[in-house]
């Protein structure tokens, strides 16, 4: 049996009296990518914020490496789970290097300065996200795609086993989407478990091992990509006709929207 990195049991979250997510049971093993799909406002971000420990007034349980998330300190959690937020608009004017270095904060006390080990990790991650030429460039002068990579880099510097990514490609053009998706594939091959949300079922097809559908505020359905990513489920999910065709040169299904 697979050993799960992150598991939820009857996870529910209500904002004041409004139930956002209800009885979500999800599980992701080492190196697996779970792609969460669902219409706008259905609670994808809420679910991911619960998983990353940002929102903690949830019902049910979240297990990180079989330990209850609520029993982990903010610091211990950050060494296992990192969040890549929906933040192409980050305002920081630090350089890429200094920004990534912040991911090492919790490895030190408040009175410490980063050491050589931290700097070596940051350099290695900058190489991994392919931004070596931007090491000393301010985030303010970078493009949206580069900033998204910087946010992913800052999360990776925490050396997490689980990466939670809230629409990591939503503000990016095709080329930058590909850069990020390739990075996600590479990270999962390194054994990092990834939970990400997206609006594009095609991306789930490309990087996903598992797909989770937030169908309405009551139902969550998770399964392997080929079982869940069907026209029937997706049409029901978005409430419009969705039709897939097989593309031979890509060797995968392509999802399109029907306008009727």
């Amino acid at each position: 049996m697979l050993e799960f990195r992150i598991t939820t049991k009857n996870l529910s979250f209500a904002y004041k009296t409004k139930q956002i997510i209800n009885n979500v049971d999800l599980n992701v093993a080492a190196g697996q990518v779970l792609v969460i799909l669902g219409p706008n406002g259905i609670g994808k971000s809420t679910l991911l914020n619960c998983l990353s420990g940002v929102l903690n007034k949830y019902q049910g349980d979240i297990l990180v490496n079989e330990q209850s998330l609520k029993q982990l300190s903010i610091k211990d959690l950050s060494h296992q789970v990192a969040l890549v937020s929906q933040g192409v608009n980050i305002k920081s004017s630090l350089t890429l290097f200094d920004y990534l270095l912040l991911g090492r904060s919790s490895f030190h006390s408040i009175f410490d300065q980063p050491d050589n080990h931290d700097e070596a990790i940051v350099k290695q991650i900058i190489k991994q996200i392919g931004l070596e030429n931007y090491t000393n460039i301010s985030l303010q002068s970078m493009s949206g795609g580069q900033r998204q990579l910087a946010i992913i880099g800052r999360a990776l510097v925490q050396e997490p086993q689980i990466l939670i990514m809230d629409e990591p490609t939503s503000a990016l053009d095709y080329r930058n989407q590909t850069v990020v998706l390739k990075l996600i594939k590479m990270l999962s091959e390194q054994g990092i478990s990834i939970v990400m949300s997206t609006h594009d079922p095609n991306q789930a097809q490309i990087v996903g091992d598992l797909v989770g559908l937030l169908i309405d505020n009551q139902t969550y359905k998770q399964g392997p990509v080929n079982k869940i990513l069907t026209d029937k489920y997706l049409s029901k999910l978005y409430g419009i006709p969705i039709i897939s065709t097989y593309n031979e040169s890509l060797d995968r299904k392509i999802f399109g929207i029907g306008m009727d």
Partner: peptide, 22 residues
């Protein structure tokens, strides 16, 4: 002494928390 931590605190509260800092 705490000047490096000040960099972290210039981020938004959610991010600071997921970095592992209260």
């Amino acid at each position: 002494l705490t000047r490096w931590r000040l960099n972290t605190l210039s981020l938004d509260a959610y991010t600071i928390k997921t970095i592992g800092i209260n």
